[in-house]
Nucleic acid binder design. Structure first.
Length: 468
RNA sequence: GUGGGAGUAGCUCAGCUGGUAGAGCGUCGGUCUGUGGCACCGAAUGUCGCGGGUUCGAUCCCCGUCUCCCACCCCA
C-alpha cells in the first residue's frame, strides 16, 4: 500500500475555452422552440433556408465587411489550410509581414519538386457575405427574383465576452437578393422580424430606423460632418476625436455622457440625403405605417459594416444590459457586384439568437421542459421482456418512454417516474404478465386502471389527442 | 484591446482582524422487496479556480494567471 495507492493523480480537467459555452438540454428546448418558430414564420413570408459553410476564404469577409472594420482587422479567427505552416514559413524566413487579407502564399521549391500553396481561411464572423457568395456561385440570378433566403447557425468573433456576447454566438438571419429595391421590400423584411418576435412573445421590442444615404450623398455628408466635428473637437473625448479622421459617422454612436449635447447639435444625415434617397426613406416609412409597424427614427443609427446603404435598422429588447441590440440589418445594393457578381439589389438582417433567448428568459418565457409520457415500472424477468415490447410499441406510436435498465422496487420506480415528470407509470409485475392486464397509473392524481395490451395503446392515443 | 468586481460541494451561498471547511437545495441509500409526491434517518462529492510568494501554518494576506460578471470599444 506504500507506493501504489499513495498518489492518485487525476488528469487535469478540460473546460470550454473562453467565450464559448455548452447549451444543456434544459436550455436547448427553448433554442429549439425559437428556431422552430423562425422556420415557420420565415416560410410564411416565402423564404427558403440556406445552409452555409462555417468558414470561407478570408478575403471574402475582408472585401464585403470592410478591411478597416474591427470585425475584419482584429476579430476573425483566421488560419492557413493546410494549417500550422505559417510558423514554419516564418522561421524559414520565406514569409514576412503576413498579410491577413491575402488569399494564398506560394512557396517555391519548399517541398521537393513542388510548389506549396496554402489558403488563408477564416471562421465566419457573419453570414451575409457567404449568402451573397452562394447567390453568385449558384447563378441564382437565373431563379425568379428576388431570391429570399434565411439561415441560422454559429458565427465567430474574437471579442471580449460579456453578457449577450460570446466568441461563438448564434445568428438567425435572412437576405432578399435580386429583383427590385422597392421600399416595400425593406418594410416587409422588417415586418417579418417583428412578426417573428411577436410570435415568440418577446418583450420591450423597439424598432429604430435610419437612412444612411448612398454613393451620391453619403460621402458629401461625411465630409460635412467631419468639418463640423473639427469645430467642436475640444468638446469630444479621445475616442471620438480619433474617429473624426477614421470614421466620422461612428462619433454619432458615442454613449459618452459628456458628448451627448454636442452630438445632438451635429448635422443629421436625413437632412442631407439626395432626392432619391429621401424619397426612398419616406416611402419605407410609409410602407411601415401601412403595415402597422411602430418605429422611431434614430439619426445616430449608423451600421458598423461597410456594405450598408440607405435603410438601416436595429431592434432592441429588454433584459439585455448594454448589449441590447437583438437584431440589426439594412440594405446593401452594391455588395454583390463588389464580390464579382452582377449588379444586384440586396437587403437583410441578422438576429442575435443568444440575446434573443436571454431576453426571453429574463421575462420568464421559457417553456416548461417536456417530461416523459410513460415510465415503465417492471419487476421480474418475464416482466422485463414484456416491458421491452411495450416500450417498443409505445415509442413507435410516438410516446416518450423511460425503461429502467434494471429491476427496481415499485416504490422506487414510481419515485423516479415522478422526478422525471412522467405523466403515466406503466406497472408490469407478475400479476400483470400472467393476467395479460397491464396497470396504468396516472401520476398526477394517483388513479389507476387495467388494460389489455391493445386497449392500453388506444387509451393513451385518445388521451394524447385530447390534451393536444 | 482598456478599466472595475468576483471565483468555496452539481446549484445558491456562509466561513468572525490567517490555525487545512459548513448550510440549504439537489443526488444516492434506508425507514418502504406491489405503488410516487410528504416526513424522518444516513451517505457521497471540494487539490476553497490554477500557479507562485509571505508565514510555524493561507480559503483568508501579496503577485501572476485563467474564467465569469459589469462598463468602455465594437457589434448580433
Amino acid at each position: 500500500m506504500s507506493e501504489g495507492a499513495a498518489k492518485k493523480e487525476r488528469p487535469r480537467s478540460f473546460q470550454a475555452i473562453r467565450g464559448v459555452r455548452d447549451l444543456l438540454p434544459d436550455q436547448t428546448s427553448l433554442w429549439n422552440f425559437v428556431e422552430r418558430i423562425a422556420h415557420e414564420t420565415f416560410a410564411t413570408f416565402g423564404f427558403g433556408e440556406i445552409r452555409l459553410p462555417l468558414f470561407e476564404r478570408t478575403d471574402l469577409f475582408a472585401r464585403s465587411i470592410g478591411e478597416d472594420t474591427d470585425v475584419v482587422s482584429k476579430e476573425m479567427y483566421t488560419f492557413l489550410d493546410p494549417p500550422a505552416w505559417l510558423e514554419i514559413l516564418e522561421k524559414l524566413g520565406t514569409v514576412k509581414d503576413v498579410d491577413r487579407t491575402a488569399t494564398t502564399f506560394t512557396i517555391k521549391n519548399h517541398l521537393p519538386n513542388e510548389n506549396f500553396i496554402a489558403e488563408v481561411l477564416s471562421l465566419r464572423p457573419e453570414a451575409t457575405a457567404s449568402a451573397c457568395r452562394a447567390y453568385i456561385e449558384h447563378n441564382m440570378q437565373q431563379l425568379p427574383q428576388p431570391v429570399k433566403l434565411y439561415y441560422m447557425g454559429p458565427m465567430f468573433r474574437r471579442e471580449r465576452p460579456q453578457k449577450g456576447r460570446y466568441r461563438q454566438f448564434y445568428q438567425i438571419g435572412a437576405e432578399v437578393l435580386g429583383g427590385s429595391d422597392a421600399p416595400a421590400i425593406d418594410a416587409e423584411v422588417i415586418e417579418m422580424v417583428m412578426t417573428f418576435f411577436d410570435r415568440l412573445g418577446l418583450e420591450g421590442v423597439q424598432l429604430h430606423i435610419n437612412s444612411i444615404g448612398d454613393k451620391n450623398c453619403r460621402p458629401k455628408y461625411v465630409e460635412l460632418l467631419r468639418e463640423e466635428l473639427q469645430k467642436v473637437k475640444d468638446k469630444l473625448g479621445p475616442d471620438s476625436r480619433r474617429r473624426i479622421d477614421t470614421n466620422p459617422l461612428r462619433v454619432l454612436d458615442s454613449k459618452l455622457e459628456s458628448e451627448q449635447e454636442t452630438i445632438e447639435k451635429l448635422p443629421r444625415i436625413t437632412q442631407h440625403l439626395c432626392d432619391s434617397c429621401r424619397d426612398n426613406y419616406d416611402e419605407v416609412k410609409r410602407q411601415l405605417a401601412i403595415r402597422g409597424i411602430n418605429y422611431s427614427q434614430n439619426f445616430r443609427l449608423v451600421r458598423g459594416l461597410d456594405y450598408y446603404m440607405r435603410t438601416t435598422f436595429e431592434i432592441t429588447a429588454k433584459g439585455l444590459g448594454s448589449q441590447n441590440a437583438v437584431c440589426g440589418g439594412g440594405r446593401y445594393d452594391g455588395l454583390l457586384e463588389l464580390l464579382g457578381g452582377p449588379p444586384t439589389k440586396g437587403i437583410g438582417f441578422a438576429i442575435g439568437e443568444d440575446r434573443l433567448i436571454l431576453s426571453l428568459q429574463e421575462s420568464g418565457k421559457a417553456p416548461a421542459q417536456q417530461g416523459r409520457d410513460v415510465y415503465i415500472a417492471w419487476m421480474g424477468e418475464r416482466a422485463q421482456a414484456t416491458a421491452i415490447r411495450a416500450a417498443k410499441d409505445l415509442r413507435k406510436a410516438g410516446f416518450s418512454v423511460e425503461l429502467p435498465p434494471v429491476e427496481q422496487k415499485f416504490g422506487k420506480a414510481l419515485g423516479q417516474a415522478d422526478k422525471l415528470g412522467a405523466k403515466y407509470a406503466l406497472i408490469l409485475g407478475d400479476n400483470e404478465v400472467s393476467e395479460g392486464l397491464w396497470t396504468l397509473k396516472m401520476l398526477a392524481d394517483g388513479s389507476q386502471a387495467k388494460f389489455t395490451e391493445p386497449d392500453l395503446l388506444e387509451h393513451l392515443r385518445k388521451q394524447k389527442a385530447l390534451s393536444s
